[in-house]
Amino acid sequence: MRVCVCIKRVPDTAANIRIGSDGKTIDPGGVEFVMSPYDEIAIEQALRLKESAGQGEVVVVSLGPSEAAATLRSGLAMGADRAVLLKDPMKYRDPYGVASTLAEELKKMSFDMLLFGKQAVDDDCCQVGSIVAALLGLPFVGIVTKMEVKAGTATVHRQVEGGHEVVEVKLPAAFSCQKGLAEPRLPSLKGIMASKKKPLEERSVATVEPVFEVEKLEYPPRRAPGKIAGQGAEGVAPLLNLLKTEAKIY
């Protein structure tokens, strides 16, 4: 089973985000960067598939700045076999730009399955996997919470509002991973040591014309300061009053 996993370097979810001096990107100063959490799930799933098949390869691929090498190393530390860093000369790439660049490189590789995270938790575009799949002519199923692979066919559960859909697809195919699919393992000390010796290939990629551009970043409007309606059950009546007169909820 050969699985290719696309991973993205993103700010830690707890990071304090400030707008950078260009007004269009964030100030990376003081921000800790990590692998997008759904991409960790994708790697875990890939490792499990390889382990249960008893053979194969897990390749992690990331498009990003040279610092994304560290993100790839953490994928290698989890157990991936090799990594490919697509060094991005652009500061911002819109989702089609990311997807077409990834697709261009993935075309040169061979795999049975392509895995993505459900979304990258920085700009939450929720589409790169689907577009890459379309460009490569592969079937795509998004937001997968369960997967079984038998005889070249994957049966997956896809989360939808109010339930889930059961979808069957022939491999090779692409999927995006949702929480619940596989709890990511923590890299072992041995894994971390081994990751330093695993191959990490760097490739350069071209710039692309964006479909849309980030004109600027803004801070969201500040909320008006809140009011404490009261303590304990005694707060209930004043709260209802506020909900009626101010919020006009009822």
């Binding site: 985000i17 938790v121 700009d123 551009e213 969201p220």
Partner: peptide, 23 residues
């Protein structure tokens, strides 16, 4: 077409302009 979308978990809002149609 200019749109606003929350990014970075709503900590900032991105104002984006489409350069190609359909958006």
């Amino acid at each position: 077409l200019v749109v606003k979308r929350p990014v970075y978990a709503g900590k900032v809002t991105a104002v984006c302009t489409f350069r190609r149609m359909p958006a």
